[in-house]
Design a protein around this nucleic acid. Sequence first.
DNA 1: AAACATTTGTCCGTATGTATA
DNA 2: ATATACATACGGACAAATGTT
Lengths: 221, 221
Amino acid sequence: MPIPANYAAPVYLSAKDRAFQQIQEWIIDGTLQPGEKINDMELAKAIGVSRTPVREALQMLSLHGFVSMKPGVATTICDTEPGEIAKLFPPLAALEGVAAELAAPVIQAEDLVALRALNEEFAAAIHSGDSFAALKVDEQLHDRIVRLCDNRYLESAIAPMQAHVRHLFFQQAVILTEKSIHEHTELIEALERHDVDEASRVAKSNWLRPIQEYAAAHPEQ
Amino acid sequence: MPIPANYAAPVYLSAKDRAFQQIQEWIIDGTLQPGEKINDMELAKAIGVSRTPVREALQMLSLHGFVSMKPGVATTICDTEPGEIAKLFPPLAALEGVAAELAAPVIQAEDLVALRALNEEFAAAIHSGDSFAALKVDEQLHDRIVRLCDNRYLESAIAPMQAHVRHLFFQQAVILTEKSIHEHTELIEALERHDVDEASRVAKSNWLRPIQEYAAAHPEQ
DNA sequence: AAACATTTGTCCGTATGTATA
DNA sequence: ATATACATACGGACAAATGTT
């Protein structure tokens, strides 16, 4: 029997991982609101697992800054005002800058092809007004660059920050615009030239620009 | 009854936190060797808690890259060759650079006093050849700057990396030298002048220099 | 002030899954 | 290939701690 080319092996997730992904998704998309108190037994029933994996998932989310666990008191969803982009984006920009620096010398032709294809997808999503699709593709594009670095420290620092970006997106604090398409193009071209400094500069500004734009749109804060 | 001024409230740790700190310490100082298989029941007995908090602690350590958990197979201490500094330090340098940038505009006189005192301590430790004491003070100094930023994303990204620095130190891959004293002085002076760019530059080079030194001392890798 | 109710933290027994013989 | 042995993952019950009535 011929095996379909794009067959994705069904990934069997442990109960803990299912709980983690589901709860994180619920936090990010606003199903679980900031400040909301969490009842682990309730969540366990909703997800269809016991308290243990839910508890474990909550501890991970706590480490990533999505929930706050006060021993013996309560577990709550962390408050996240949209203004948080000013806190989140500088460290993220720095790390993405490093990623670009590390990727520039080692990038291969096939990576460039893939990045260009992703940027096409990204542009299409922006132009069709599907900003959620744009967000997901944007994440894939940056993630592809990060994985070129083969650096677990970088990856594990960026991953939770990316999740927070998605959270802020659902709070309408992050808006992806036309400008990002051009920035991606610039970044890809710098990577193609193995231009370390320029790649780093563009990657950083791609993440720092939204801070200015948000500040300009919300001068009261 | 007069309450002693420097009375430190005895911090009651949960079993999980005790387990986490103890196991991390054992990994860092080499009591638990890279590659070693972990038996949670054994650890639980040694620490004096049950398997659950040990399991939870191991999951956190897994998130931080200290242990590797293969579901249903084994939990092992991550292999960490000394050459890892070349992986760890670039992202850490970038984050410490951001920390310096964010701290420079908001730093207060009392912070500068504290930082100078810490650098004195650091110098004393270096000169007396107590490199372990130097490491601990170095950590405090950088941590003080990071906390000025009031940025949880930055803090939670840097914390596990700092733990890895200590791990590499115990593997004799990180050596603190006289040069660091001067770099700290430069950094403190830049912070005092609220010179964002210079503070960032010095902070980064303080972390990037050891990579060069390690590479020079181990040309075979 | 004391007892209560709720929620979290901990324990340990069992089942599932993997790697071996 | 099947069976066996092992370690981990999960579940549910208990205990401790907090805040409240």
